[in-house]
Design a binder for these strands. Structure first.
Lengths: 369, 369
DNA sequence: TTGTACGCGTTATCAG
DNA sequence: CTGATAACGCGTACAA
């Protein structure tokens, strides 16, 4: 209000901070034109600007502490070289690894990745893009439930319309990770051979003599968990030399240690008691181990437990978890590669990444064998 | 190249996608001027635009699928209402909680938070801002080591200069979380009463009769870990009724279960053997428990273990970890509030948040008592 | 080799 | 109540 700057239309109350130098300022300071500054700083000056001038420009930029205005650059260029990675949660290190993989590939191509943990109830952020308001060139969504994905699409502005300030994913190229290859408008898909993992788990348990199996299934409407259930059903349906194992129970559970504990307690206290617990996630598996122990059952002597993901947690607990290792980092990397391909108009090869069963201490021979 | 659009200076090869509608398009479609569109969509139309016109504009925007161009908006407004949250890692859920807290407060003020996990070796991303290239209004840095913070500052453009494409944190308002209140150029600071936590831990162990304590200290140059060490030294120095416990050993360790296991193994296999292990982090504490068990020691009968953070992991392992709960979410929220204050020119109250020792199963009476 | 001019899409001012 | 108009900072075709 009491400011005396020439700028009556002050964009922001920058207060005490010195106004950010612009390329004009650099140009003035170096005694050249704006265009020259742009050329030099954009590394396109060779053969067009004299080395002396170029160096002068750089010096000026350095002393002024100039950095280009990203908004202006984006506006002019029409792109931001930035991708949004939407993940359902950060409560396990799985998605941290997905991000790492994506960020590494992105960096190689001078791209940035902005991470958006879809808020589950925390605070008023119903719209995925309400919070992650970076200007984006594309979206990578990992293991998202369909509803969340719908919100991501924009879902057609219902209700009060555009009050949220815009930037819905609407229209942006989308790459889906570990999600239904069919159901989406995704330009590309990267998937994991989840079914293989489940089959391997069943084979592992069967070989150990287990015949009564319970499934602690994630109570989340995400495709990746649906696959687990279907693959399990199929694997159990197949012949196993006359002694087919059966699914004695399915318990839905939240994706946390506490929820896993509760679900496992229920699963283990009903007859017939299962000798093996297949869990959709390592967090749940850890909870299941706790539940068994509280019930006076030993793992793996009395009950075997398996998980999915191979989180850091899997080797932190005792006994260590037999689990299906999912190549999180590779998936993130492949997702970013696919997005880059789409952005460049190239066809994105839709990949399916292999998984591996890692046998550890939480599984053993079925009791009475 | 072969395109026939009017736009010879095509910014981006948008390829097949339909060109994004602009406010001009909306205006044309609704039969009004751009300014009217801006007013209506910005919810500043009451009393200036007829309700009929307003609704027409909204309808047009809806049918066209219009969403405002963020780059242009930022350019015009000079701000992006976006903050960057820089964290050292996402391998534990601690920083996920910090983010949740910050994002919740941000959302209340129509702000966004972009999360930047400082890459530790993964991929070529030396510059914190190389990857998180969103246009930013401010930065919140949590528990960062000084070197990383220096990079964040921009550290004075050395070497080849601005080739990185700009956007260093240079000059942006910075709020530091759980970091040295002295050492920075931070506009505000939010800290945790870490020292209290360490004192409580020592008191807890002392009361249980422990006299030989080892410290599994994080081998990270972050302030928060320095405080732990200093507070421990002080707490041990104070009188404890004639029978002062002593620090028999300090082992530096990486912040992971495996590193904790290795460090604890070393700490427990040298004489005199400590009866209690104070760990800088729950991940380390989990590793320490594993180490003890592998050495044939029971927790807590033979050796007690304590941690910091109260991660989900703390209650996932058996026995559950006695640990110092750090109010991560509150810290994130307070950090965001402080940043908002700074941005508005208000004074930011520098806060210190209380912590609490949570006694669980990993600590017990000292052996031989 | 360097400078001039224009437009990206938005918001705010001011005159109708 | 509405419509021109200017400006935000940058990148590039074109003229000098």
């Amino acid at each position: 209000m009491t400011s005396t700057r020439r700028d009556e239309d002050a964009a922001q109350p920058r207060d005490g901070r010195p106004p950010r130098p612009t390329s004009r300022d650099v140009a003035r300071s170096a005694g050249v034109s704006q265009a020259t500054v742009s050329l030099v700083l954009g590394d396109k000056w060779e053969g067009r600007v004299s080395p002396r001038t170029a160096e002068a420009v750089r010096a000026a930029a350095r002393t002024l502490g100039y950095r280009p205005n990203l908004a202006a650059r984006s506006l002019r260029l029409g792109g931001t070289r930035t991708a949004l990675l939407v993940v359902p949660a950060l409560t396990s290190d799985f998605f941290a690894r997905v991000h790492a993989g994506a960020a590494a590939v992105a960096a190689e191509h001078d791209f940035g990745v902005v991470l958006y943990p879809s808020p589950e109830g925390i605070g008023p952020a119903p719209d995925p893009f309400g919070s992650a308001r970076a200007a984006l060139d594309g979206v990578i969504a990992s293991s998202m439930a369909p509803e969340a994905l719908a919100a991501l699409r924009g879902g057609g502005p219902r209700g009060e319309g555009l009050r949220d300030g815009g930037l819905r994913g609407d229209g942006l190229p989308l790459v889906m990770l570990d999600s239904d290859p069919e159901g989406g408008r995704a330009a590309a898909t990267v998937n994991l051979a989840i079914a293989d993992g489940m089959r391997a788990t069943v084979a592992h348990l069967t070989a150990l003599g287990h015949r009564r199996i319970a499934h602690l299934a994630a109570a989340v409407g995400s495709w990746t968990f649906g696959v687990r259930a279907r693959a399990l059903a199929e694997a159990l349906g197949e012949g196993h030399g006359g002694e087919a194992p059966v699914l004695v129970r399915t318990r839905p559970t939240g994706l946390s240690v506490t929820d896993g504990l509760a679900a496992a307690t229920e699963a283990l206290t009903r007859e017939p008691r299962p000798t093996a617990l297949i869990c959709d996630d390592d967090l749940v598996a850890a909870g299941a181990c706790k539940a068994a122990r509280r019930l006076g059952l030993r793992v793996p002597e009395d009950v075997s437990v398996t998980g999915f993901d191979d989180l850091a947690l899997a080797t932190a607990v005792e006994p260590e978890l037999t689990t299906v290792r999912l190549p999180a980092q590779e998936m993130g990397a492949a997702g970013m590669r696919a997005l880059l391909a789409v952005l460049e108009g190239r066809p994105a090869d839709t990949a399916v990444l292999p998984v591996a069963l890692i046998p550890r201490g939480s599984t053993g021979p079925a009791p009475g064998r």
